[in-house]
Design a protein around this nucleic acid. Structure first.
Lengths: 149, 149
DNA sequence: ACATATACTTGGAGTCGTCAAGCATCGGAA
DNA sequence: TTCCGATGCTTGACGACTCCAAGTATATGT
């Protein structure tokens, strides 16, 4: 319907994919007492990676530090994370998953990966997609990438 | 860092793409006095397609009808849309772009398509990506697709 | 005509998000 | 050591978005 460019069509597809995945896991979010912003935050907390500071979370979520305070409060109320002062710098607080938090995140990731429309592609197709998306997102990204340690 | 599946990695990439594109057009949104939800709504209003009713917008945006009322109010305040009663059914109201609305949408789409990381791919790569994404999003989508007329 | 359904709006409440200001801590210079 | 400017987080105020429940207007079928 729209005589627009290929890039435009791709943008629509990517957005629709994100949207469809979100919609597909709505029931799990409800079970886990999570909203989308909270689920995004939980998603960032990879149990296999070092626990991030509040500030690092703010960078990853592209939001104000005070928003991280808010989200961390909520996740703490749900017993999904703990906030502990970093060793060596008592200003910095580190977000760590609790056992419940790890389990909640596992369920979240499982639901998302099994229900997303992406799951309908074959492994070979997924690999091709991965290659293309990685190339698009590759370094020299937006140059506004001062690393944050 | 995460021993997760390929699908998981793809989800991260797709989400990051959507996020990066949003971030890249922030200044344009500010110029146009748009927030993200408002920009999403404006994005849906393709000038080349028939003007949608409020309800159709609610379906497209996956939100409550009252939210569309709210968004349409804002877009109207900005002189981007008009709300006119549909011929034949005076309950139904149709959202139409004004000239300013068309221009705002044009700027929005232009900024998004030129600045998204997707724009770094060659035309051939974009076509491959389009094929894969289209196949993933293809019909039998989520079956919850009763059409809405 | 009348009941029922549909399209939209209104009011109330809760979540999310930012900014400005404040507190605690750190690090370097005097 | 002591002081001062940065840094990390929190708080408070406010606005934007979103849903739900209830209300109004119009349409449809009996």
């Amino acid at each position: 319907m729209d005589g627009e460019s290929l890039t435009y069509q791709l943008l629509r597809l990517v957005h629709a994919m994100d949207d469809a995945t979100d919609a597909a896991i709505q029931d799990v979010l409800t079970e886990l007492n999570l909203t989308h912003p909270l689920a995004d935050a939980l998603w960032q907390l990879d149990p296999a990676a070092p626990a991030p500071s509040m500030r690092q979370m703010a960078v990853r979520l592209r939001c104000d530090p005070s928003t991280v305070t808010f989200l961390a409060d909520r996740l703490h109320q749900l017993s999904y994370v703990t906030r502990t002062a970093a060793t060596g710098d008592r200003r910095t607080k580190v977000l760590e998953l609790t056992d419940q938090g790890r389990e909640a995140r596992r369920r979240l990731v499982e639901a998302a990966t099994t229900r997303t429309p992406l799951a309908r592609l074959t492994a070979a197709e997924q690999r091709r997609l991965h290659t293309l998306m990685t190339r698009a997102m590759a370094p020299s990204a937006t140059e506004e990438e001062k690393r944050y340690g």
